[in-house]
Computed example of a mutant assay.
Amino acid sequence: MKPLGSVRWPAIAALTAVSTLAQIGQFGIGFMVLPVWLAHQGLDAPRAGLFAASQWTGMLAGLMVAPALVARLGAKKTVALGLTATIIAFPAVSWLSWPLWIAPGVLTGLGIGLRWIANESWLYRLVPEELSGRVVGIHETLIATAGVVAPALAAWSGPVGPVAFIAGVALTLAAAIPLWLTAPEHPVRPVTHEPTVHATAQAAPISALVCLGMVVVAVGGISDGALYGLFPLYANARGMSDTQTTLMLSCLGLGGMALQVPVGWLADRAGFGVTVIVCAAASTFALSIFTLAAPVSWLFPASAFAVGGMNSAFITLGMYAAARSAKAAIVRNMRLVSLAFTASSIVGPLVTGAAMKALGNDMLMWPLAITSGALVVYTLGVCEGRRQLSGPSTAN
């Protein structure tokens, strides 16, 4: 156990600041506010869905190449590359037009993917094991502020002016300051000969728990990709103003911040399968209310809060499943869950955008409600099947 006095607390604080500032700029502005700006440029649902898919495709590419870049260049330079990609992307969006917007869309996602893997792997290697839970909790709470701060900034300044782009660049540049004040790591070279037990665990079949976690996080990815990429078009179809749109995005973010601790507590107390069923059923109900409620009703922000919380809960539960898996295979399982989330986030806006084109922009929430409802049925089937085969469900 590492003595607490030898822990690099300044480096831990600096890298947490990098994550927080970059998440607000890269995800908050790039994935939540930028689609509002694009909707004002006349982007219809299929093209908005294609742009959102390009962002998630870029993130998928970043997740795939980041480990190799960290091994070759080190974590610090890899994070810097991710920040640079975003800094290039924001002004490029304002200079270009469709279909060239796809290129900065890919860059915004690529920047997040590179920063996510490189910065967080660097950060968590510095944290003592006995304090990892508290540090991770603080870190996740801080980066969740992106879903609140960025829409609030857009509501204050107006999402259609240059302020959003300037803020995105400024916040991403600000993240570079604590990054460059932190002493770099040496590049992590691949290990040639791993212990036999570790290699066996990596090659072992994926457990039922992790498989269900991948399905759950895939539903979360579909919802996240479609909701944040296409919400401005839905809001316009419902007659909402720009201020109402950004305020609803803030409600989604607040739900994501506030409801993750209760979801984790429920998973520990009631079991994974039960928690998935509860969250998926709550998501289906909240999405239905969100569609039926009038924008001026109190039910509208309340259901947005619940929708945001349950969307984030799907991601939390996917990571929970990976964390509860065999420790020797945890890196593999975390990667599988992350890739399932990102790949489904590409599919979500494409399929939902096509459905909105055919049925109307106000139909956004119904495909997502159907997906959540299908998760309830699927998880019930998994739990019942496991119960019949071996008694109590191993998903619990």
Rank of each mutant, 00 (worst) to 15 (best):
I206L: 11
I206A: 05
I206M: 12
A208L: 10
A208E: 09
L209Q: 02
V210K: 05
V210Q: 05
V210E: 05
G213K: 03
V215S: 13
V216D: 05
V217R: 01
V217K: 06
A218W: 08
V219A: 12
V219N: 10
G220Q: 00
G220W: 00
G221W: 00
I222C: 14
S223Y: 01
S223D: 09
D224I: 10
G225F: 03
A226T: 00
A226M: 01
A226N: 00
Y228V: 13
Y228I: 11
G229F: 02
G229T: 07
L230M: 06
L230G: 10
F231C: 01
F231Q: 00
F231Y: 12
P232W: 02
Y234W: 14
A235H: 05
R238M: 12
G239V: 03
M240R: 07
T243G: 10
L247W: 14
M248P: 02
S250N: 00
L252D: 06
G253Y: 02
L254M: 15
G255A: 03
M257Y: 12
A258N: 03
L259V: 07
L259R: 04
L259I: 09
L259P: 07
L259W: 07
Q260I: 11
Q260A: 11
Q260T: 11
V261L: 15
V261R: 14
V263G: 00
G264K: 02
W265H: 13
W265P: 02
L266G: 00
A267M: 11
R269L: 09
A270I: 06
G271V: 08
F272T: 06
F272L: 02
G273V: 04
V274S: 08
T275H: 03
T275A: 04
V278A: 15
C279M: 15
A280G: 05
A280K: 02
A280L: 02
A281Y: 03
A281L: 14
A282L: 15
A282M: 15
S283A: 15
S283G: 12
T284K: 01
S288C: 11
S288Y: 12
I289M: 14
I289R: 01
F290S: 12
F290P: 08
F290E: 07
T291M: 11
L292T: 13
A293E: 06
A293I: 03
A293P: 08
A293G: 10
P295K: 06
F300Q: 11
F300R: 06
P301G: 09
A302T: 15
A302G: 11
S303H: 04
S303V: 07
S303R: 10
A304R: 02
F305Q: 08
F305D: 01
F305C: 00
A306P: 04
A306N: 03
V307T: 12
G309I: 09
G309T: 11
M310Q: 12
N311C: 12
A313Y: 04
F314R: 07
I315Y: 14
T316K: 10
L317D: 06
G318F: 01
A321H: 02
A322D: 05
A323I: 05
A326Y: 01
A328V: 00
A328E: 15
A329M: 05
A329E: 10
R332D: 11
R332T: 08
N333W: 08
N333Y: 09
M334G: 14
M334E: 10
L336M: 13
L336Y: 15
